[in-house]
Write a protein that binds this DNA or RNA. Structure first.
Length: 441
RNA sequence: GGCCCCUUCGUCUAUCGGCUAGGACAUCUGGUUCUCAUCCAGGUAAGAGGAGUUCGACUCUCCUAGGGGCUGCCA
């Protein structure tokens, strides 16, 4: 029986979760699911200034939004473990692996800190699951502080002790911790705990190759959520930034991700964030959204508009058929469909100028309205026949374009005849005539 | 400065010594079409440079160049 694999995501809650960070969470989560291990969440909340209840809640919200949950065991709070941290320090002091010294810090604080005594010779080595074999001479790493002069434990110590206490077997974290790993391994040894496996993930960088920050655009999970991205799309995109399934699939279900994910295939090199591809990915997920889900989002967006009441399921289904492939972001609704539900829809001035404010358009619209009025059944096919007859194979553009702007106020949208059918006879005719009177010379 | 790591199309990547270097995004062209979007067909575009090992190197080794990370009483 092999040991259970336990991984953890250990962010310090600052109120915003960086995409690089959440990608680490995603990789941890997938790895745990893939091997049937445990995914643990540890909140490194020792910075009392920033680790407010709101910041912690924001972190939880992001995790839930992406479908990562809050871990397979109760959330571990670093601040709750300070007593243990300091007990370990006492042992280290007793064994001579740590010592106290008076120092002056960078920012001018002078006081007694506890230092960890690094080995002075030999090589520290480990096999990084993504980067391969890593080695560093112990002499290249100076002793480092583990307890501040105010008595509070420092990251290196707290992090290692917590990992021991949570029985973490695989530490999968950002590349920026590689150098720390050599120190941490020495700590594990001195404490007498087994050394976990390590995997260091490359960073997400900007066009200049520097760490991707808020100056480069949306950098935090919440911003993508607010911008209308689907969590599955962000998840999938972030996963592909540094890993691929080995074949040419890119849009993957969560099940496929879990079964195919492999830490050893994760890339060593930094990846540039490509918003265009994320946008494409989002479109793919919207297209694949179950129709009922898309329909629900659509209905919700126009809830309360008077025209939204009384439509039957079939009507909404037909609207879905028209809108789902045309939607880039769910939050573009209701804007994109509002005109179906209110007669005081907005007219795009450019569209009016181009399609309505021209000589001859008025006559065309009124003539068409009269002809439309005579169709026996108000459906797309019948309406199209009317325009087909008029255009006599010359192209329906001159009739279609003005009508589209007249009934919707815009130049793009569903197929015109489907649009008219959905709008209904009464509204369509009234709108065509009203627009002709109002906007045409 | 020191230590560690990285380097295939503009971007994300495939290739685990045989490559006419494949896919996706972006971009361009064409088709479908009443617009937009979708969809379909096609095009442009890459192995940082130099040595070596080998019958053969994008794949292995070394050097150079370029990039990144770390070098806190921050995590």
């Amino acid at each position: 029986m092999t040991e259970e694999i336990r991984v953890r995501f250990a962010p310090s809650p600052t109120g915003k979760v960086h995409i690089g960070n959440i990608r680490a969470a995603i990789y941890n989560w997938l790895y745990a699911r893939h091997v049937g291990g445990k995914f643990l969440l540890r909140v490194e909340d020792t910075d009392l200034e920033r680790s407010t209840p709101e910041a912690i809640q924001a972190l939880f919200d992001c995790m839930e939004w992406l479908g990562l949950g809050l871990g397979d065991e109760p959330v571990f709070y670093q601040t709750k473990n300070v007593k243990r941290h300091l007990e370990v320090v006492e042992r280290l002091l007793a064994s001579g692996d740590a010592y106290k010294v008076e120092r002056t810090s960078r920012d001018g604080k002078t006081g007694v800190v506890t230092m960890f005594r690094m080995p002075k010779e030999g090589t520290i080595e480990f096999d990084d699951i993504v980067k391969g074999h890593m080695a560093k001479k112990a002499e290249d790493i100076p002793d480092f502080a583990i307890v501040r002069s105010d008595g509070s434990p420092i990251f290196h110590l707290a992090n290692v002790v917590d990992d021991i206490d949570q029985r973490v077997t695989h530490i999968i974290r950002g590349d920026d911790h590689v150098e720390n790993t050599f120190k941490h391994i020495c700590l594990f040894r001195a404490i007498g705990a087994p050394i976990p496996h390590y995997g260091h993930l490359s960073m997400i960088v900007n066009a200049q190759g520097k760490p991707y920050s808020k100056r480069d655009g949306a950098a935090f999970v919440g911003e993508f959520r607010d911008a209308g991205y689907l969590p599955e799309a962000l998840f999938n995109y972030l996963l592909l930034l540094g890993w691929n399934p080995g074949d040419e699939r890119e849009v993957l279900t969560r099940e496929e991700m879990v079964s195919l994910f492999d830490l050893e295939k994760v890339h060593v090199t930094a990846a540039k964030f490509d918003l265009k591809k994320l946008q494409w990915m989002n479109g793919e997920y919207i297209k694949r959204l179950p129709r009922d889900e898309f329909k629900a989002a659509m209905r919700k967006s126009v809830e309360g508009l008077e025209g939204a009441a009384g439509r039957d399921e079939a009507w909404w289904d037909r609207l879905c058929d028209q809108m789902q492939v045309r939607t880039k972001f769910l939050k573009d609704m209701p804007g994109n469909i509002e005109y179906f539900f209110r007669d005081d829809y907005a007219f795009d001035p450019k569209a009016v100028e181009k399609r309505l404010a021209k000589d001859g358009v008025k006559a065309t619209l009124l003539d068409l309205a009269d002809r439309f009025e005579k169709v026996a059944t108000w459906d797309a096919v019948s309406l199209e026949v009317v325009v087909k007859e008029l255009s006599q194979g010359q192209g329906m553009g001159p009739w279609v374009h003005p009508v589209r702007v007249a009934v919707s106020g815009r130049t793009e949208g569903p197929g015109l005849f489907e649009l008219l059918e959905l709008l209904g006879r009464e509204h369509s005719l009234a709108r065509i005539r009203a627009a002709a009177a109002k906007y045409c010379p």
